[in-house]
């Protein structure tokens, strides 16, 4: 049985991370930005678990990833509530339309 090794996993994680970053930077829809954040978090989680399997991190990697998933879900819930609240007040979810506060 062939073993994939650590580096390929890390590279997949890096691709996810970068896609997420670009997504956060370029999307104007607030929910699109949040999707970018999810991608970034998944890249990090994949890193942690790959290190936990092949690296010296051991089981701690899985434990940390577990909490990250939970925290990310909580963050997404609040973010979505804020987006809804914004939509109720402004009737748009375009982040670039949020410019009332620029002076």
């Amino acid at each position: 049985m062939s073993d994939v090794g650590l580096t390929p996993y890390l590279i997949v994680a890096a691709v996810l991370f970068v896609c997420g970053i670009v997504c956060m930077a370029t999307k104007r829809n607030a929910i699109g930005v949040l999707m970018g954040v999810e991608l970034v978090l998944n890249g990090a989680n994949l890193n942690l678990i790959a290190f936990s399997r092949y690296g010296q991190l051991g089981f701690d990697g899985q434990a940390i990833a577990m909490f990250v998933i939970v925290l990310a879900a909580a963050e997404a819930a609040v973010a979505l509530a804020i987006v809804l609240n914004f939509y109720n007040n402004h009737l748009t979810v375009d982040v670039d339309q949020a410019r009332q506060l620029n002076s």
Binding site: M35, N45, A76
Partner: peptide
């Protein structure tokens, strides 16, 4: 990939919370 890395519980959690929960919330 998590399953492939022998992180079964994490894989299931990922499916349940992320895919089944967070993304549904986002689509909502």
């Amino acid at each position: 990939l998590f399953f492939l890395l022998h992180a079964d519980f994490l894989g299931a959690t990922q499916l349940l919370i992320y895919v089944g929960g967070t993304v549904v919330l986002l689509i909502f």
